[in-house]
Every structure is written in structure tokens, then in C-alpha cells.
Design a protein around this nucleic acid. Sequence first.
RNA 1: GGAGAAAUGGCAGAGUGGUCGAAUGCGGCAGUCUUGAAAACUGUUGAGGGUCACACCUCCGGGGGUUCGAAUCCCUCUUUCUCCGCCA
Length: 423
Amino acid sequence: MLEVAQIREHKDAFVKALQKRNIDATALLDQVIAADETRRASQSQLDQVLADSNKFSKEIGILFKNGEAQKANLLKEKTAGLKEQSKGLQEQLNEASETLKNLLFTIPNIPHDSVPEGNTDEDNEEVFRKGDIPVLHDAAQPHWELAKKYDIIDFELGTKITGAGFPVYKGKGARLQRALISYFLDKNTAAGYTEYQVPHLVNEASGYGTGQLPDKEGQMYHVTEDDLYLIPTAEVPVTNMFRGDMIAASDLPITCTGYTPCFRREAGSYGAHVRGLNRLHQFDKVEIVRIEHPDNSAAALDGMVDHVKTILEELELPYRILRLCGGDLGFTAHLTYDFEVFSTAQDRWLEISSVSNFQTFQANRLKLRIKDKDGKKMLAHTLNGSALALPRVLAGILENCQTPEGIKIPKALVPYCGFEMID
RNA sequence: GGAGAAAUGGCAGAGUGGUCGAAUGCGGCAGUCUUGAAAACUGUUGAGGGUCACACCUCCGGGGGUUCGAAUCCCUCUUUCUCCGCCA
């Protein structure tokens, strides 16, 4: 959620920034400013009425104490009108606040200066590339064939017990999943992130806090009986741990990592490129989350990108980094880098990590603030990234590391899974 | 699932209708003393809205009500604790 005070002061800059998302926000921002003015006007009218009635109440109290009941009763009559007024003004104020809030909920974050123009993923800007794309043997196969061949993932079985997009991992496949989770968590904790295990269901307030609600309402599984949502990413519970907090600047940065399954309805995304592990309703992910001082968030984002790089290099996977263009940028993000691994067998890049700086956009919803040494208060900056999402890393390993003899496990993972080959 | 008790500032904890945004203690910050630190002493110390700055308004778990006036009374929801039941 953008900050009203900022919009009020720098409307033109906001309009210009939002153009990168191909949104003309002029009218919308005017509405915001108007709603805010209405809100403040109602507020100050109400304040005035309340101030008067407070004054009368005090006088009545004193009169009763002094035994001047008659005078007091006279005053009482005066307050009746004020009460009516304040009720009306209160309603007006609530309405204005609600209007303002709902408007703000519809406006996405403003993109960073470096975010390229563009509409689709075609317009994302490649900023880095590393690793050799392997030359595979003639009989190389995509991962869904390999999964069947080595009997490590059973998609049909998942369909039987739940539905499409809920695979069953088996034998070395299951072990490799567990190995990847441990490996990622170890890498993250070694880099200073504190490990957490968090709930996999969250309440509505948490959904609003990180911005999944109301924007992505239909993309989350909603347990209506208890009004809880299955998390689409660990970002939601982890970031919401700090909802409403006031953090001493000296305690920053706060860095967290956690493994969770992620649940996504993926409504409307069927069609091309969803075979095998490419798009699932349930998948595993290890996430990193940082809460930073505004002065440090840009450097922190770079640090997170470097961290993810080291993991991919250890896994010996060919990858590239994209700076997302305005049209592809998530609703809450200010600047996002996507990591993609190249799959030779599928002849395409697979997104395996997304690292973002949200600046104050989430913090404003979360009411997550920093207090510095001088007592100055400000909204924190939040950042997060996948380190990493499992299914496509697994797909990348299966497809890139296949040999005629079997899948050769990257060295870094061998101590975690206890075998060198899947054959 | 049933019965009871509770929810107050960073923490602990008073306050049961009228200068209560809230005693007191701890903690935090600043100062005095000290070569420095500790101790002691003095001062200061919740949040949001609003204003150029004041004024002023709101907030004692959330929501609603009674009243001229609510932290205090009533209703409701949530959470925590204790006991009973059930159970991985």
C-alpha cells in the first residue's frame, strides 16, 4: 500500500512511475487525494464536536460535585445535539476512511528507476548469465519422462489421491527433495539467516499484510469453515510475524529463512508449459526474508541476489538473472530479479527464484516500523526471495545432469542425499 | 467439546463511572558524580490522526451498547490460563 502523504506531495512522480506498469493512474490518484481530503475534513469536524462535548462533560461533572444539579441538567440538554452530530460525523469519517483504503488497495507498488519498460516477460532485461549449457546425449529426455523412467515422481498417483498438480515423490526422488530442503536451509543459515518453522495456514489479516489480499484472492486455497488461507509462499507467515511491530534500528537487519510447502490454485493458468514439475498446486520452497532500514534495502537486495548466485553455482546449474519489466513486476514489488535455470531437455529457461524489494509497500500495510536512536519513526523496508523453489531446481538437475548411466547428483548435494546417481 | 478466570504502556502491575493517557516498579534514554564503568542521584520516556508549530481528537484485546461522561457497567467476538472430557 502506497503512503497517502507521499501521494499528496508527489502525485506527478507517482503517475510517471506507474506508467511503467502500463497504468495511467492520474484519475485514481486524484480520487485518493480527494478521499484523503474528505477524510481529514470529517476528522477535524468530528474532533471539534468531540472537544466541545468533552468540555461540557467535564463541567457537568464539576457541577454535580458541587451539588448544582439544576445547572448540570441544563447543560445535559445542550449535549444531546452534539451527540447526534458526532454520530453523523463518525459515520462520514468511517466511510471516507473505507473509501480511501479500498482505493489504495487497488494501486500496485511503484517500480524502481531501473525497472525496464515493457508488457510481458519478453521485455525482462537479462542482467547476468553464468554456467555452461550442457550438451546432452542423444537419448536425453524431459524430467517427466525421467521421473517415470527412474520411478522417483508419480504424477498419476498424486492425481488419484488429490488431483492434478499434486505429485508424489518416491524413493530417491523423495530423498532428493529432503536433501534440497536441508541443503538450502544450511546455506541460508550459514549466510546469517535465522531458521523458522511457521504455520502453513494464515488468517485474513496476514493475507492483507503482505498484499496477497485482496489482489490475489482467487489464487489462494481458502478454508472457509475457519476463514484461513493455505499459504502460497512462506513470505506470508514469515513477514507477518513482524506485523504491527516497532523495531529498534539497532536490531536491524532482521533476517529469516524457512521451509514450507506452498499452495497455489493457479486458476486460469492451464495450457502451455505446465507439464511435469513446471507448474504445481503444491510445491516446496525455502524462502529468505529480510527487514531492513530504508537506507540499506538496495544493498540488501544485491546481497540476496549474490547469495542465490552462490547456491546455483554450487549446484553447477547454468542460470541467468532477469530484471523484471514493469508489466511483469508483481503487485507489491518495487524491484524484482528472477533467476532462471536453463533446461536443455526442454530447451527453455525455468524460473527458480524471485528476489524482491518491496520498500515500504508491505510495511505500510503491516504497520511495521523502525525507531532509530533519536526516536524517529519510519516504515521499514521488506524484502524476500526464494532460496530456492524446489520443483524446477529438481527439474533442472534431472534434465541437465542426465547421462546414459543415470542422473549424476551435483557434488554439493551428495552428502545430503547419500547417493551419487539416480539409476 | 463443557465449566471457570483473565486480557491495561517495552515488561511487571495498580486502577471498579468524572481533571486517568492511566499510580508504582523494572527496563530504555539524557545528565550529575567517575580516568572509564558500575552503583547512587536527577530528569525524561506509549501509539495514531491533525497543525508551519501549537491547540485539539482517538486508542486500556477487537466490535457494539448504556451514560452528559467508560479502562471501570452491559452485550458479543477473539485470545490466554486453570479444571473436566476427547485425542495425535
